[in-house]
């Protein structure tokens, strides 16, 4: 069922290896970095908001 007869053929990709793995690599990179950026943004927003809320509570409680 597998089209390729050896792993090295698979990597060579009929001579188009650079282009095929280039585009897959780029896509994989994007789909890895984007979630990381979103999550880091989320945690920084949460910590910033927490500080703001604590600051507000401290002002109101004084």
């Amino acid at each position: 069922m597998i089209h390729w007869n050896s792993f090295s053929d698979f990597i060579a990709m009929g001579g188009y290896g650079l282009y095929v793995w280039g585009s897959f690599g780029a896509t994989a990179l994007v789909m890895a970095i984007e979630p990381i950026v979103v999550l880091r943004n989320r945690s920084s927003t949460i910590s910033r908001l927490k500080r703001q809320i604590r600051a507000e509570n401290r002002n109101t409680s004084e």
């Binding site: 390729w4 001579g15 188009y16």
Partner: peptide, 24 residues
């Protein structure tokens, strides 16, 4: 797409980029 699909008689193996290009 990458393991089972056959070679394209015109574009050889390079056509496999469509599995990323067209969905995107």
């Amino acid at each position: 797409g990458m393991l089972v699909a056959p070679t394209d008689f015109q574009q050889g193996e390079g056509y496999r980029i469509i599995f990323i290009h067209v969905p995107a």
